[in-house]
């Protein structure tokens, strides 16, 4: 049976060394570039005609746009509008990474969202950005949210460290959630695929059962790819809301 972990291996496509640092163009980098190219092509070509009554492609592009625009409006409010380009790019990048990662592309097929360093880098950008926005809008008053109103002052010794840890754990929980879902899903797919080959290789009939199961799990994985992109984006919106409207 194929090694279910092997799919997460980063393989260089073009070897590059800059000042002793390995900056090879890898399968991960290739999939990131493809995600950006496919997303850009999809979003620009589909709205090229700019018709009042949208066609199929244009409706899809508008669906994405309105989905994120409404998410920002509901969760952040009107001040969130200027962060739309960032949030939309984040959503599209995660979504296309998840979806393209499900395609069985030979040699370079790879899911970059299944590597924690990738998801952590995105979560860290969100976290640092939100913290900077919070301090820029509220100054040192932003620190007030680490201590609840009305609690006795003596409890600050315990409450403040707990709230600070809770705040600092956000980028980690945001990145771990996406990474764990994608990694677990892809391992399950690979193992079931291995069952299909080994059982189906012996007799045709027993191979059908894991194959049917594999089909169902693939559908589930498509759902998870969409859901995790949604969760990543909506949590970004909620953090943004926190930084903009302090309570």
């Amino acid at each position: 049976m194929a090694n279910p972990i092997e799919q997460f291996k980063i393989k260089p496509i073009i070897d590059l060394q800059v000042g002793g640092i390995d900056v090879s163009f890898t399968n991960s980098a290739f999939m990131m570039v493809s995600a950006v190219v496919v997303a850009t092509a999809f979003l620009t070509l589909s709205v090229r005609s700019r018709s009042l009554i949208p066609g199929r492609w244009q409706s899809m592009a508008e669906l994405f746009y309105e989905f994120i625009a409404n998410m920002l409006k509901d969760n952040v409010g009107s001040e969130g509008r200027k962060y739309f380009p960032f949030v939309f790019s984040l959503f599209i990048f995660v979504l296309f990474g998840n979806i393209l990662g499900l395609l069985p592309i030979p040699v370079v097929g790879f899911t970059y969202t299944s590597h924690i360093i990738v998801t952590f880098a995105m979560a860290a950008v969100v976290f640092i950005g939100v913290t900077v926005i919070g301090f820029a809008r509220h100054g040192l008053h932003f620190l007030r949210m680490f201590f609840p109103h009305g609690a006795p002052l003596a409890t600050a010794v315990v409450l403040i460290p707990i709230e600070v840890i809770s705040y600092l754990s956000r980028p980690l929980s945001l990145s771990v959630r996406l990474f764990a879902n994608m990694t677990a899903g892809h391992i399950i797919l690979k193992i079931l695929g291995g069952f299909v080959v080994t059982l189906g290789g012996m007799y045709i009939l027993p191979g059908i059962l894991p194959f049917a199961f594999l089909g169902a799990v693939t559908l589930l994985e498509i759902g998870i790819a969409l859901l995790q992109a949604y969760v990543f984006t909506i949590l970004t919106c909620i953090y943004l809301h926190d930084a903009i409207h302090m309570h």
Partner: peptide, 29 residues
């Protein structure tokens, strides 16, 4: 010391998520 604080904040995070409260900072809020 911080392992204790971390456990407390982990419990708080999990409780907050279980109660389906929002993901805002500050338990009181």
């Amino acid at each position: 010391l911080f392992l204790v604080f971390g456990t407390a904040s982990g419990v708080m995070n999990a409780y907050r998520a279980a109660r389906r409260m929002d993901d805002t900072v500050g338990f009181a809020a």
